[in-house]
Amino acid sequence: MKSIFTIAMLLTAANACGHSMSPITFGGKDKPLESISVTGSVVVPITVGSEITQDFIITVDGQEVDRLQIDEGQYRQADIPVKLNEPNRLEKHEVCSIGVGLSINTRICTQVKAYWLQRKSE
Score class of each variant (00 low, 15 high):
1 M>C: 04
1 M>H: 10
1 M>R: 10
2 K>A: 14
3 S>W: 11
4 I>G: 03
5 F>L: 15
5 F>N: 10
5 F>R: 13
6 T>Y: 12
8 A>R: 02
8 A>M: 08
10 L>V: 13
11 L>H: 04
12 T>L: 14
12 T>C: 14
15 N>G: 13
16 A>T: 13
18 G>P: 00
18 G>S: 15
18 G>V: 06
19 H>F: 08
21 M>A: 13
24 I>S: 12
25 T>L: 04
25 T>I: 12
28 G>N: 04
28 G>V: 09
29 K>C: 04
30 D>H: 02
30 D>M: 07
31 K>F: 15
32 P>H: 04
32 P>A: 07
35 S>W: 01
36 I>E: 09
36 I>W: 08
37 S>N: 11
38 V>C: 12
41 S>P: 00
41 S>A: 14
42 V>W: 08
42 V>P: 08
42 V>C: 11
43 V>C: 06
44 V>E: 04
44 V>R: 10
44 V>M: 02
46 I>S: 01
46 I>L: 07
48 V>C: 11
50 S>Q: 00
53 T>S: 15
56 F>N: 07
57 I>A: 09
57 I>G: 00
58 I>C: 07
59 T>Y: 07
59 T>P: 07
59 T>S: 14
60 V>P: 05
60 V>T: 08
60 V>N: 09
61 D>G: 01
63 Q>D: 14
63 Q>P: 00
63 Q>Y: 04
64 E>D: 10
64 E>L: 02
64 E>I: 08
64 E>C: 02
65 V>F: 04
66 D>F: 10
67 R>Y: 07
67 R>A: 12
68 L>P: 09
69 Q>I: 14
69 Q>F: 11
71 D>F: 09
75 Y>A: 09
76 R>H: 09
76 R>F: 05
77 Q>Y: 03
77 Q>A: 06
79 D>M: 09
79 D>P: 02
79 D>T: 08
80 I>K: 09
80 I>H: 05
83 K>N: 04
84 L>T: 06
84 L>K: 11
85 N>M: 13
86 E>P: 00
86 E>G: 00
87 P>V: 00
87 P>F: 09
88 N>D: 08
89 R>G: 00
89 R>V: 07
91 E>K: 01
93 H>I: 06
93 H>M: 01
93 H>D: 11
94 E>D: 07
96 C>R: 07
96 C>V: 02
97 S>W: 00
97 S>V: 01
98 I>G: 03
98 I>M: 05
99 G>Q: 12
99 G>Y: 01
99 G>C: 15
99 G>V: 01
99 G>D: 10
100 V>S: 10
102 L>Q: 13
103 S>L: 14
103 S>G: 15
105 N>Q: 14
107 R>Y: 03
110 T>P: 00
110 T>H: 00
112 V>L: 00
112 V>S: 04
113 K>E: 15
113 K>G: 02
113 K>I: 03
113 K>V: 01
116 W>F: 12
116 W>A: 04
116 W>T: 00
117 L>Y: 10
117 L>E: 11
118 Q>F: 07
119 R>N: 11
119 R>L: 12
119 R>G: 14
119 R>V: 03
120 K>R: 10
120 K>Q: 13
121 S>W: 08
121 S>N: 14
122 E>Q: 08
